[in-house]
């Protein structure tokens, strides 16, 4: 079997495996036509894959948008937290000192409500939420945002004295993933209604 036929076959298998229930019969219909082809398998499979990707995007767009907003929310929430929660109770300088002293704890716990929300919204996607939300959005996306403001590169993660949440980077990352896991799992178990 040629490479193009192998790729085409993988695409068709993905179409059938990942089609939503309402489209499963149509996905099987597309595959049966694929099986009846004499030639043009890759083009047919690519077209079906595109159609299936559009179905998935229509279903998942809000979830993906929320994931993309993770680094923005994590960046914005602490900035507005003072103005809405602590204004009048503590001085801004005292708040900044508090943030500085407890930056690690704040940094690890800030995404917890978001993880709960995402876990509730998509209880079938806890694993994906952890990978996309924690690894990609919070840490890769967050690093990109910091790089834009302060310069530097991803190599700083492996610098000799690098820390994440005042721990070695790997430990910091695993701790963050645990928080996401706890949040997403809690959210998945909650019963308040989500209209989807």
């Amino acid at each position: 079997m040629t490479i193009s036929r192998t790729v085409a076959r993988w695409m068709m298998e993905a179409v059938v495996r990942h089609s939503p229930p309402a489209r499963h019969e149509w996905a099987v219909a597309m595959q049966r036509e694929y099986d009846a082809l004499d030639r043009g398998h890759l083009a047919w499979a690519a077209g079906c894959f595109t159609a299936a990707a559009r179905w998935a995007l229509r279903r998942e767009w809000l979830y993906l948008l929320l994931i993309c907003l993770v680094p923005v929310i994590i960046e914005v929430v602490p900035r507005i937290e003072f103005d809405f929660l602590w204004y009048g109770l503590v001085s801004r300088s005292a708040f900044i000192a508090f943030e500085h002293n407890y930056a690690a704890v704040i940094g690890i716990l800030t995404p917890l409500p978001l993880a709960i929300l995402l876990g509730r919204y998509r209880p079938d996607r806890v694993g994906t939420t952890i990978i996309l939300g924690c690894l990609l959005a919070q840490h890769v996306g967050g690093t990109l945002m910091v790089m834009r403001e302060l310069g530097g590169s991803f190599l700083s993660w492996w610098a000799p004295n690098a820390t994440l949440y005042m721990m070695p980077p790997l430990a910091g990352l695993l701790t963050s993933m645990c928080v996401w896991y706890i949040g997403a799992s809690l959210g998945a178990r909650m019963r308040w209604p989500v209209h989807r």
Binding site: A29, A43, G47, F49, A51
Partner: peptide, 10 residues
């Protein structure tokens, strides 16, 4: 093409 045909059929 298949990517256009099937959404229209649906």
């Amino acid at each position: 093409k298949s990517g256009t045909l099937y959404p229209i059929l649906i």
